[in-house]
Amino acid sequence: MIVLGLTGSIGMGKSTTAAMLAEEGVPVNDADQVVHDLYRSEAVAPVAELFPDVIVGGAVDRQLLSANLAKNPAKFRELEAIVHPLVRTREKAFLDRQRDLGQDLVVLDIPLLFETGAQDRVDRVIVVSCDPEVQRARVLARPGMTEEKFQLILARQVADSEKRAKADYVIDTGHGLDTARAQVRTIVRELREQAKRTNHA
Rank of each mutant, 00 (worst) to 15 (best):
R97V: 14
V125H: 00
R124D: 14
L112H: 06
D109T: 02
D100C: 12
L113Y: 03
V106Q: 05
L108C: 13
R99E: 08
V106H: 02
K92Y: 10
L101E: 12
R124W: 09
L108W: 03
L108H: 04
D120W: 05
Q103R: 12
D131F: 11
D109I: 01
D120L: 08
Q103D: 10
Q119D: 09
V127F: 03
F94S: 09
P132F: 07
D100I: 10
V134Y: 10
R97K: 13
D109E: 10
L95C: 15
L113S: 05
V106C: 07
E115Y: 00
A93K: 13
D120S: 09
E115A: 03
V125P: 03
V106K: 02
Q119W: 06
E115V: 00
Q103M: 10
V128F: 03
D100G: 15
E133P: 11
Q119M: 09
R124Y: 15
R97P: 12
Q98N: 15
L113A: 10
V125D: 03
D123S: 12
C130P: 05
A118N: 08
Q119L: 06
L105P: 04
R121A: 15
V107H: 01
Q98H: 11
L113E: 01
R136S: 12
D100K: 12
I126D: 03
R136Y: 04
